[in-house]
Design a protein around this nucleic acid. Sequence first.
DNA 1: GCCACGGATGAAACTTACTTTCATGAGGCG
DNA 2: CGCCTCATGAAAGTAAGTTTCATCCGTGGC
Lengths: 304, 304
Amino acid sequence: MAKSPKISASHEPGGLIVHISGLLPSLSPAEQRVARLVVADPADAARRTITDLATAAETSEATVIRFCRSVGMDGYPQLRIRLAAEAARRIEPPDARVVGGDIPPGADLAQIIATIAFNDARAVEETAEQLDPAICEQVVEAIGGAGRIDVYGAGASGFVASDFQQKLHRIGRTAFYFPDVHTALTSAALLGRGDVAVGISHTGTTSDVIEVLEQARARGATTVALTNFPRSPITEVADFVLTTAARETTYRSGAMASRLAQLTVVDCLFVGVAARNRARAKKALEATAEAVKSHRVGATRRRG
Amino acid sequence: MAKSPKISASHEPGGLIVHISGLLPSLSPAEQRVARLVVADPADAARRTITDLATAAETSEATVIRFCRSVGMDGYPQLRIRLAAEAARRIEPPDARVVGGDIPPGADLAQIIATIAFNDARAVEETAEQLDPAICEQVVEAIGGAGRIDVYGAGASGFVASDFQQKLHRIGRTAFYFPDVHTALTSAALLGRGDVAVGISHTGTTSDVIEVLEQARARGATTVALTNFPRSPITEVADFVLTTAARETTYRSGAMASRLAQLTVVDCLFVGVAARNRARAKKALEATAEAVKSHRVGATRRRG
DNA sequence: GCCACGGATGAAACTTACTTTCATGAGGCG
DNA sequence: CGCCTCATGAAAGTAAGTTTCATCCGTGGC
């Protein structure tokens, strides 16, 4: 072999390990011993110091360096980094994903956590995928230009409604939420053209919310529905319909994933509205942050 | 460390980056500069030498070493290796624009939606990864056997607290939530051995919540903290600490992703408690569903 | 106002890891 | 046998990482 030719030098496709085992035969005996260790357990090799690895391969540090150069690395540290990365990448996904959705009786906490997180994350992602940006845009426009915004929701969706109200309020929009149907109806009766009413209902069948939204619409307000079911009754009283994409399973009847999906939609609308008037929103946010500042205690340092 | 609570100890299961960002506020200013560089681009940091990184963070090598120790590493080389591994494992984000987390001025709705959904889903997944099932188990045990459960939270975390309360209530546990500090303090004063108090605070620095939790603990109740920052003050008054793993960005200061992460944890605990006594929980759920039935209108009319 | 204290910080000393240089010696070949 | 080549490790040299320590700054007592 001539003067150490840079073999497939800078770029070794298909992984460093493969690359190394490929040119194993072309290496000198001492280098081969190093190579074999590396290939056998990349993660372990990455943890070792050069002296350590040299000893393990029954050779000197110099040879390890030569080996590094032979496989196209600049030096030992680079090899280490690359090996660590390689080893991490080839780690198998933890185990058969807990896809099913429902939680088997006798499941342990780790299983429960994995299942819930998987479904929650899925709901968020799928919701985002099916959200229509054009409709969102119109809703954002309406909210951004509204004189007043009413947000309705009952039960679990009530929290989401309340959250949305708080968010809008924090960026200086006039928004209301009513935990009580009667108050909500009263408020809806006072809405008019240029106002916006948002109704949130996972099932889309919550009569209280539908009723209030209907009232708001009758008064000329722009109505928005947020539901998981695009053909549910609530959509009939809404000018704009936004849908979530949560697939609830029996045991999770508390509408767990749907709540997260709803919140994601709320976040999108919120950021959309805020982005519409950056300066003002930013100022309002800063003011509200300042307001609660005295209720924060200094962050801890090292425990002592 | 005297009475340190049970945080997911020295091991950082769900990913080093997440772990570091959680610790960020508890680090000294100079260390924070290092941390931010590392979190912003782990792969790049892994490539740098300690001197290089120190210079980039406008500090000394000593501080970088201190940072390594602060996040649980033996030294810089180990950090490098771990970072490289971490960076490699990270799946390519769907869209480069979406990664930063922050929303560029002039972004359109589609972009906003993608960004938020990505970050929300991430927060949920990463939270699940770093949740310690053993600690969850203990918390579930405590809640499942509690005479009474108080859930505290202020601002955005208040919704989560309220949601948790409602969930527990629906499966027949005696749970309370108080939107008002004074009422909460009064309630905490009445807690005793065998009761459980759960405090929720994203930052972990909300004095109201800390105060109430402290009171509860003084009365002999088991205290649980749910926060994004494992070294924040709230952890000092908690017997059990559960952490979320949300990386909020400037514009999302409303703690958007963190809220979803918190809800995921709440869901896990809820299902855990419910699973502990399936029969009873199921019966309670059915009863509550029946109760709201009259407020539902006939499902899914065909669109007219 | 002053002082003591404790934590944060970087300069410099120090240690360890990495890299280079160089001498040695084992084969190969005329 | 002498010469060449080249793999190899010892040792020297350099760079990276780690520790120590003096300084600085803010904080809280007196």
